[in-house]
C-alpha cells in the first residue's frame, strides 16, 4: 500500500526513470543467457553475409518468416494441429501408463511380468516406431497415436511405478495404524505421493513426443509442423524451415513453463533447493 502511494506521487519523468532502472535490473539479473543468445545471433548474422541465403538466411528473413506464421491463422493452425496431436497422444499414453504403473506398484505378479518387457521396449529407438507405424497403419492420426503410445507409455508406467515404490513404508504403517479404508489410503498417501513422479514424467515425455511427432508428420501428413518442414525442405526455403522450428520450440517452452508452474503450485511443501554445483 505504502509503495503504491509513493509511486503515485512521483512525477512522470521520475516514474519513467524508475521504470528504466527496474528494467535494467531485471535484464542485469539475466545477463548471461542474454549474452549467449546475442552472441549466437550475431555469429549467425555474420555467417549469413558470407554464405548463400538458401543455406544461411539472415536473421531478418527468419524473423519475417516467423511473424508470417504467427500472424496467419491457417499457418498457426498447423502448429496447433501438431501440438494437439502431441497432447492427445500424451494424454492417451499417460492414462494407460498410469493404470499400468499403479497395477505394477501394488501387484508383485504384474510387476514381475511387465517390468522386463517395459525396459526392453524402452530400448527401442523412437524412430523404429515411426517406421513400424508407417508400415502397419495407413491413417496418419493412427500412426501418430501409435508412435506416442509405444514411445511414451512405458516411460510413464516406469516413472509412476517408481513413484509408488518410493512411497515410504514408514508413512504406510503410520496411516495403517489409523485404519483407513482403501480409498482413504489412496487419497491421503498414494495420490499425493505420486504427484512429483507424474510431473517428472510429463516433463520427460513432452520433449520426446515433440521429436517423434515431427518425424511422423514428415510422412503422409497434410497438416502440421512436420509437413510444413518437409515443404520447406522440398522448396529449399531455409528461413521457413528455421521459423517453423522456432515456432514449435516456443510452444514447447510454453508447455514446459505450464508444468513448472504446476510444480511450483503443487510441490509448495518441498524444501527450497539449496544451491547447485555452480554456486
Amino acid at each position: 500500500m505504502e509503495s503504491e502511494a509513493t509511486r503515485s506521487e512521483l512525477s512522470p519523468a521520475r516514474a519513467q526513470e524508475a521504470w528504466h532502472a527496474r528494467l535494467l535490473s531485471v535484464l542485469a539479473a539475466r545477463k548471461e543467457p542474454i549474452i549467449s543468445f546475442g552472441v549466437i545471433l550475431a555469429a549467425w548474422q555474420v555467417a549469413s553475409f558470407f554464405l548463400p541465403p538458401y543455406l544461411v538466411p539472415g536473421v531478418g528473413a527468419i524473423l519475417a518468416a516467423f511473424i508470417e506464421i504467427v500472424a496467419s491463422l491457417t499457418l498457426l493452425g498447423d502448429v496447433l494441429t501438431t501440438m494437439g496431436r502431441i497432447f492427445l497422444g500424451l494424454v492417451l499414453a499417460f492414462i494407460t501408463g498410469t493404470i499400468l504403473g499403479v497395477f505394477m506398484g501394488f501387484t508383485e505378479t504384474v510387476e514381475k511380468y511387465t517390468l522386463p518387457v517395459l525396459h526392453f521396449i524402452m530400448g527401442i529407438p523412437a524412430l523404429s516406431w515411426v517406421v513400424f507405424a508407417i508400415i502397419w497403419f495407413s491413417h496418419v492420426e493412427t500412426r501418430i497415436a501409435f508412435i506416442l503410445l509405444a514411445g511414451c507409455l512405458p516411460n510413464y508406467a516406469l516413472i509412476i511405478h517408481d513413484g509408488i515404490k518410493s512411497i515410504s513404508k514408514e508413512y504406510l504403517d503410520m496411516l495403517r495404524a489409523l485404519r483407513p479404508t482403501r480409498k482413504q489410503l489412496f487419497s491421503k498417501l498414494i495420490l499425493p505421493g505420486m504427484i512429483p513422479a507424474v510431473l517428472t514424467s510429463w516433463k520427460v515425455n513432452l520433449g520426446l513426443a515433440a521429436r517423434v511427432v515431427i518425424v511422423a508428420e514428415l510422412v503422409g501428413a497434410t497438416r502440421g509442423v512436420g509437413n510444413k518442414l518437409l515443404l520447406a525442405q522440398e522448396l529449399f526455403e531455409m528461413p521457413k524451415a528455421i521459423a517453423w522450428t522456432l515456432v514449435l520450440v516456443t510452444f514447447l517452452l510454453i508447455s514446459q513453463f505450464v508444468i513448472l508452474f504446476l510444480e511450483h503450485k503443487l510441490l509448495r511443501w518441498r524444501p527450497a533447493k539449496q544451491g547447485g554445483m555452480a554456486t
Binding site: E170, Y171, D173, M174, A177, L178, R179, L189, P192, I195
Partner: peptide, 21 residues
C-alpha cells in the same frame, strides 16, 4: 483390523509427518 479405528494412538520413532501436509 478395522475394529481398532481411532482406538490406537501411536507415536513413532521418526515423526512420520506427511511432507506435503
Amino acid at each position: 483390523f478395522d475394529w481398532f479405528r481411532s482406538k490406537l494412538g501411536v507415536i513413532f520413532q521418526t515423526d512420520r509427518l506427511l511432507p506435503w501436509r
